[in-house]
Amino acid sequence: MTHAIWAEGLVKRFGGTTALAGVDLAVRTGTVLGLLGPNGAGKTTAVRVLATLLQPDAGHATVGGYDVVRQAHQVRQLIGMTGQYASVDETLTGAENLLLIGRLLGVPRAQAKARARELLAQFELTGAAGRAAKTYSGGMRRRLDLAASLVGRPPMLYLDEPTTGLDPRARAELWELIRGMVASGVTVLLTTQYLDEADELADEIVVIDHGRVIATGTPDELKAKAGAQTLAVRPADASHVAVVADVVRELSRGEPEVKGQLVTVPVADPAVLPGVVRRLDDAGVVVTELALRSSSLNEVFLSLTGHAAEEPSEGSES
């Protein structure tokens, strides 16, 4: 089996809204696929379909060769799931949560307890094992979520926005743990709103927006396509905005965006910067701000779709 997870033409509607409008996905065994998109793009819906929690209205998908609708029980034996929508029981302790899942998977009590201890140690939760999960910090909670999805040693792991809301240190720790799992041969489907997260972890990225796949490729290919960085130029004199826009358009081969006096454009190659400086100098344009910075997801979206990623809205995805 070359593709651990495979989906074709997935469609899912909720009343009048179309959450998935024909999504194709393929995750090679032992790799990480990053599903990248803003809130409401359909990421969670896609994961829920692949996790057998939702039935698609059209299209089909297989996990480990099993159909997610007709062979849901087989699929459930292959997957581990963690995310905002598949949570641990916060009234139970960390150890009890892991024991519960082990027992539900049919593991004898002694073995389930041993596995829980092993995972708690691996995720540095041994000290908090006897405390109710609701007392955990955000980072600890995510680690417990992750541990809970690994109890049955699933060959496939779905991580639905695993680091959303975490501070940078907790985020880096979680990334390290995910890399460790990938090294042990697990296939991972990761959804994220963060370009840097997909860049850090994914072998391949699928960008979705409004339920459609709008770009696919390795992180490098995508960055080249979308412009991994953004060049921002602010002329001192407002009358120079048009000149600046022309110069950056020509050199970056991207469509600049003008906001007030600030001109921004995605660039694939940072080597354009000296050229821009030279050209602006020749044209006699004085700038008060000139910067090259990493693109935000919004800017990647802008360059891929021609529209900005929508403002995150609570509960727009389900």
Binding site: T52, M81, Q84, L105
Partner: peptide, 10 residues
Amino acid sequence: GVFDRLRSLP
């Protein structure tokens, strides 16, 4: 979300 976790188990 506990119910979803349970439903994702075999």
